[in-house]
Structure formats: C-alpha cells, structure tokens
Design a protein around this nucleic acid. Structure first.
Length: 271
DNA sequence: TCCTATGTTGTATG
DNA sequence: ACATACAACATAGG
C-alpha cells in the first residue's frame, strides 16, 4: 500500500504527546518485522517514554521518544492505528504501545515492514545521512541527472523506484510521473535527453506535491484519492484508457514491477 | 488451484 | 568495486 502520501498519512496518526507516557509494550519478538530489532532494548527504552516528534523521510518513519528513536517501515501492507487503551491485539498487530488513554498499534499482515529501535539521544547514522526529499530545494535537477547517468542502462521505471535518490516513490507514483512526463517506462535512464529530463523533474515534484495535498485535506486519518484525470484512477482497470489521449493503456513487467503506460503519450524511442 | 499485490534485500552475474 | 536482474520474504484476496 504505502507510498509517500500514504506514509505521511499514517505518520500523522501517531501524534507527539509529551504528557502521555508509554505504560506497556506488547510485541512478539519472533515476528519477522523485528528481524533488525533488539526487542529487549526497545522494551527498556519505550516503557515510561513519551513521544516527542513524528518524522518521515521518504517511506521511512521515525518516532523520537525522550529515551530513544523508533524507526518504522510499512513494507507492502503496514498500517499505523490508534486504538482504545484496552485494545486486544489482533493477529497481525506486531507492536502495541499502551498509554493511559490510547494504544499505538503497528499492524502488518505480510510483515515486509520493519521495526528498529536506537536507544539514547542520537538517531542512527542512516537517519542522519538520509537523502533529500523530492520537494526539498536540495533535490536538484542536476543531482537527478547525475544519478540517471550513473544508472544509464537500467530502465527509467526501475531507477525512479530507487529510494536512495527518489525517496517515497513507489510503483503507482513512478507510473504516474512517467505518464505525465511522456516518457516510456522501459527507456534507458542514460538515454533521457535535456527536454525529457526537464519534464521528468517537473513531473516528479508535481506528483509528490499533488499526492501530499490530497492527504492533507483528509481529516479522519485516512487518505483521499489523487485528483481527477490522473493515471492512478485507470491503471489497474481492464480496458483502461489514457486520460489524456483516450487510447488504450498497456501493461507489462518493467524493472520487476507491473507497469502501466500510455503508448500514445509515451512512445518508445531511443535518444 | 493459480495468480496478483502501492516494498526491500540478499545474491548471482556481468 | 559497481551496476543490474531477480528470487525471496508471508499473507490475503480475486
């Protein structure tokens, strides 16, 4: 499920609260989501702790407590919820942080998600070294182009999914961006010319901004759909047509992922 | 039964 | 050492 905007939406459910301390931590240490987590340190660090700050970098979430840093990744099916204080954990509720008035729940059926805990005042180094967000001024067209040149032989679709340069982009957003930029997903990243690169950069920022705006409008803790006219609304539909040209869409596996594009708007060509 | 799934990582190969 | 491709992870739903 979760790409940039959905992760942001989940993040906002776990709001900082400097008054409410964690009074209980429920978890099953053998669950796969704890594969990189020292669960005894997590218990020790979070019992009695307060959530000071909820942060996000791409799809990665980071919760700063007064006694340590809790990193969560939602994988393919992860969700964050806030439930009542007496919440009885269900089958896929892997981590429950209980407070006096409510419980913070991390739920993930497929367990591709991950939990990590770093005790103390300093965050882990990977967090300190996180790449710039796509909407950050430090995400420059030049930095994007240098990255594309380094990944010259890989399909552009696969390159857009690389979190080290395009944090938050997932399968549907990558297709949306390439459709908007008029670039065929199988094009080699190194063959993108200056005009295409300018369109790609603009589309990246447009789609990120648009996706985030839809979630900001939501009040009830769930996210809305992207705006009308986006590829998103038709990309999984059998017989879907391009919102811009009306021509039939195409689907294939590119970069290891199911990919949808409009052959009329995104013709394949070298250059 | 078989196929799919909005993600990442380890491993093999070039 | 670096870039690329792909199986594997675990579960639910069509």
């Amino acid at each position: 499920m979760p790409e940039l905007a959905e992760v942001e939406c989940m993040l906002r459910r776990w709001k900082p609260d400097t008054r409410a301390a964690i009074v209980g931590v429920d978890l099953h240490p053998r669950a796969r989501v704890f594969r990189s987590c020292e669960t005894t340190a997590l218990r020790r660090g979070l019992e009695g702790a307060r959530l000071l700050e909820s942060l996000r970098s791409g799809k990665q979430m980071m919760f700063r407590f007064d006694r340590g840093w809790l990193a969560l990744h939602l994988g393919m099916t992860g969700e964050l919820r806030v439930e009542s204080a007496d919440w009885a954990e269900g089958r896929h509720d892997h981590l429950v942080l209980r407070r006096a008035e409510s419980a913070l729940v991390f739920h993930d059926p497929r367990m591709f998600g991950a939990v990590e805990f770093t005790p103390g005042a300093e965050p882990p180094t990977w967090w300190a070294e996180r790449p710039p967000e796509i909407l950050d001024p430090r995400f420059t067209r030049r930095a994007m182009e240098i990255f594309l040149r380094r990944r010259a032989r890989a399909p552009i679709k696969a390159v857009l999914l690389m979190q080290e340069r395009f944090p938050g982009i997932g399968n549907w957003m990558a297709d949306e961006i390439l459709w908007r930029a008029g670039i065929h997903p199988a094009r080699a990243a190194g063959s993108i010319d200056a005009d295409e690169s300018a369109r790609l950069y603009r589309s990246l920022r447009f789609v990120c901004r648009g996706a985030l705006r839809t979630i900001v409008e939501e009040k009830d803790g769930s996210w809305g759909d992207p705006p009308d006219g986006w590829l998103f609304h038709v990309r999984w539909r059998a017989g879907g047509v391009c919102p811009a040209t009306g021509a039939p869409l195409e689907t294939a596996t590119i970069g290891g992922r199911t990919t949808c594009w409009s052959p009329t708007r995104q013709p394949f060509r070298r250059s």
